[in-house]
């Protein structure tokens, strides 16, 4: 059970009780780290970036107007920090062209991804995720792992809701393609 809301802690931090920031960090640091580590694919970098994210949050807390949930605002900072860190490293990832993706029928994708959760499947998923671009990984993780709504993802990624839906749809297709490739 959560004793106090994020707003309560934010007000306390703004009033000078910086120790309240530890409560916000306790609440979100693990999930933010889990997202960043998947996006940047390096534990040490992810730890450092998670710390950067929380320091940015602390610095910019006065500019948080409360027009969206605190968690959405926090994830937006985490998403941008992780993606700019990856962009600096100029990593390469697999690209599947549109024609290949169009070859997969929507129903085939739905049926193809309708399988039992097994250890082997989880390993396959992790391998497939590694082959997505960092942006794609972030979006699909926000949707499935962090269970964010399309509206929230749109706010986090600064994309339109339609764009998010289209991207998620394509990422699912891409994952299906990768699953098929790895299984064959």
């Amino acid at each position: 059970m959560e004793l106090y809301t994020d707003t309560y802690y934010i007000q306390r931090i703004r009033a000078g009780h910086i120790e309240s920031f530890a409560c916000l960090a306790d609440r979100y640091s693990q999930t933010v780290f889990a997202l960043i580590v998947r996006v940047v694919q390096n534990r040490e970098d992810a730890e450092e970036l998670t710390q950067d994210v929380f320091l940015k949050v602390f610095r910019k807390l006065d500019s948080f107007k409360g027009d969206c949930a605190f968690s959405t605002w926090l994830y937006r900072i985490a998403y941008n920090t992780a993606l700019s860190a990856v962009r600096k490293k100029k990593l390469e990832w697999l690209t599947i062209d549109d024609s290949t993706l169009n070859n997969f029928a929507d129903t085939a994708v739905d049926n193809g991804l309708d399988f039992e959760t097994t250890e082997a499947r989880i390993v396959l998923l992790e391998k497939a995720l590694d082959q997505l671009s960092p942006g794609e990984r972030a979006l699909i993780l926000l949707f499935y792992k962090e269970e964010k709504s399309i509206e929230e993802i749109a706010l986090i990624s600064s994309l339109t809701q339609t764009n998010v839906k289209t991207k998620l749809f394509r990422i699912r297709k891409k994952l299906y393609g990768l699953f098929k490739q790895m299984e064959d």
Partner: peptide, 19 residues
């Protein structure tokens, strides 16, 4: 099922000294 798979995926843990 994709959602179930994502949920079952193991999560990296932050070190205790992070806080």
């Amino acid at each position: 099922k994709m959602h179930e798979l994502f949920r079952a995926m193991p999560e990296d843990k932050l070190p205790a000294s992070f806080r």
